[in-house]
Each structure stands twice: as C-alpha cells, then as structure tokens.
C-alpha cells in the first residue's frame, strides 16, 4: 500500500510543476491564471500534508480521552490553521487577477499574453 503522505507530497510537487509549466508556456492569460492557481494549491497541499499522521485523530481534546493518548495520536493542528488563512489569501489574489484579465479583454479584445503583455515601448 502506498504511503498517503508520500503520495500527497509527490502530488503537491506535480501541482507546482504543472502550474509553472502552464504559467510559462501557455499564451492564453486565463490558462496562465489556472496555472497560477495550481501553484498556490500545490503549496497549500504541501503544507497540509505536513500535519498528516497515520491513524491520527482530529486535534480536539474530548472529555473521555486521556491526555497521553491524545498527545501521541492527534494530528498537528498548526498547518491546518495556516492553510485556512493561505487559501483565503489565494482566493482573493485570484479574484483580483481575474478582474484585471476582464478589463484587459475589454480593452484589447484578446487574451493572448504575448500580444497584450509584450513590451509596451514598441
């Protein structure tokens, strides 16, 4: 059986690489933005994977649990809190980029990055 944590780590690495590929090589701005969101999700998946514990429990101390058992079996709660914040930030950044993409499309009638994001001095 595959180790879930290892699989998730590899998956997050693939997300980042695929996202970088899309952001660099694809010309359409919307596709670039999708690539960017892939990079963000890869980073988030990486963070959340750090908190994984095989057969762990949710880090909430219930009245019928003994503290020693809880300490050895609960997952690490900090990355969850961090990822929650970073997802929110990522979503708002994405909203701003998409809004700018809309304005650019209205202005130029095209979404080709090499056309509208080329050198402005030429």
């Amino acid at each position: 059986m595959i180790d879930v944590q290892l699989a998730a780590l590899l998956c997050s690495g693939c997300f980042i690489l695929v996202g970088l590929y899309a952001a660099i090589f694809l010309d359409n701005i919307i596709k670039k933005i999708i690539g960017i969101s892939f990079i963000e999700e890869g980073a988030n998946l990486f963070l959340i994977t750090l908190a994984y514990k095989p057969k762990g429990v949710v880090p909430i101390l219930l009245p019928n649990m003994s503290p020693d058992w809880f300490i050895t079996n609960s997952a690490y709660p900090l990355p969850h809190a961090l990822v929650l914040t970073s997802v929110v930030i990522g979503a708002s950044t994405l909203a701003v980029i998409l809004a700018i993409a809309m304005v650019l499309y209205k202005k130029h009638g095209s979404l080709s990055a090499s056309e509208i994001l080329g050198d402005s001095n030429e």
């Binding site: 090499s114 994001l117 050198d119």
Partner: peptide
C-alpha cells in the same frame, strides 16, 4: 530587460 512578460518570466524561472 524590456517590459515583455515572457522575458521577465524567463529570467525569473
């Protein structure tokens, strides 16, 4: 070092 996104992106990566 012009303002084209592709060149900037190339050097960044």
């Amino acid at each position: 070092q012009d303002d084209s996104l592709n060149k900037m992106m190339f050097y960044v990566i």
